[in-house]
């Protein structure tokens, strides 16, 4: 079973995503801010069970989604893990910034939870094809 780490400070949204992923057949991990997300990803990767995908919200306290993505990419243990960024920011330059730090895909908020699940499946399938 694939594992998805969800990092989002919005409790209601995080719970909805976790619910959707669980129903979609994924194991889940979660964190409520960027620092906790980095710690969770690093701990899992160090234990040899890195998440298969990380969903990251852009706007978070302590560490933004972009900073988290950068940190994940800088760590050899977490750098191969695909990342999907959740963002309400529609400005092209900001989205480009996400891709610059190595985000694999992004989902614009507001979104349809079914669409999010589709993106997760697609990114995981691409990652599997690459491996």
């Amino acid at each position: 079973m694939k594992t998805v780490l969800v990092v989002d400070d919005d409790d209601a949204l995080r719970e909805l995503i976790l619910w959707k992923l669980t129903k979609g057949g994924y194991a889940t991990l979660s964190a409520a801010d960027g620092e906790a997300g980095l710690a969770a990803a690093t701990a899992a990767a160090t234990a040899g069970v890195a998440p298969d995908l990380i969903l990251v919200d852009w706007m978070m306290p302590k560490m933004t989604g972009i900073e988290l993505c950068q940190a994940l990419r800088d760590n050899p243990l977490t750098s191969p893990v695909p990342i999907i960024l959740l963002t309400a920011n529609r400005q092209d330059a900001e989205i480009e910034r996400g891709f610059e730090v190595g985000v694999d895909d992004y989902v614009l908020k507001p979104f349809n939870p079914k669409e999010l699940l589709g993106r997760v499946r697609a990114v995981l399938a691409r990652a599997e094809a690459r491996a």
Binding site: D10, D11, A12, L13, K109, P110, F111, N112, P113
Partner: peptide, 15 residues
């Protein structure tokens, strides 16, 4: 309260 919290994040039929 939960429904209100989720409103800004979903769209279309979900909203």
């Amino acid at each position: 309260a939960l429904a209100r919290d989720l409103l800004p994040n979903v769209r279309g039929p979900d909203k």
